[in-house]
């Protein structure tokens, strides 16, 4: 059995957070958490799951581009990460750190702060030629609108 870089249970346990951006909301005070927490800072543990993908609007607040990356991400260079604000249907918002995609150089994100983004389902990592293909949610600049 070859060595696996990504252990199946570790990936599997987090699928809902990677695929659906599932966080938690405190039923007592309304605070939202992503990644999810089981206990709120207000002391309550009465939490409900919410998917940030239900947010009708995502805005890029600021971003960075990495050219020196760990070896397992070498073929995905450059890596972009943004501070993304998700506006939920009820008017609340939360800021998350998220990977950016569909760009080839940092120039494309110049003046991108404040622009609207859209979530997109993508490959985050391929574990060598035989291991798992890990999927998750990334963001890209939104061009068309409905």
């Amino acid at each position: 059995m070859p060595e696996l870089g990504v252990l199946p249970p570790r990936y599997w346990r987090n699928v809902r957070y990677y695929y659906r951006l599932e966080g938690t909301r405190c039923k007592t005070c309304g605070r939202i958490y992503y990644p999810p927490r089981i206990r709120c800072v207000c002391g309550s543990s009465d939490m409900e799951n919410i998917s940030l993908l239900l947010s009708p609007k995502f805005v890029l607040e600021c971003h960075t581009t990495l050219h020196s990356v760990p070896v397992e991400f070498e073929k995905f260079k450059p890596l972009g990460f943004g501070l993304v604000r998700a506006y939920l249907p009820d008017g609340q918002s939360i800021r998350i750190i998220a990977p950016l995609t569909d760009f080839l150089s940092r120039d494309e994100y110049e003046d991108a702060s404040g622009r609207e983004l859209e979530p997109t389902f993508r490959v985050v990592m391929r574990d060598r030629t035989y291991g798992l293909v890990c999927y998750g949610t990334k963001f890209r600049i939104r061009h068309s609108r409905v």
Binding site: F76, D102, T120, F121, V123, V133, Y135
Partner: peptide, 16 residues
């Protein structure tokens, strides 16, 4: 397809 896209990612995006 971009290097982080494949038949799975496109299927999910279309299905959503």
């Amino acid at each position: 397809e971009f290097y982080d896209e494949d038949a799975v990612t496109m299927a999910v995006n279309a299905a959503r």
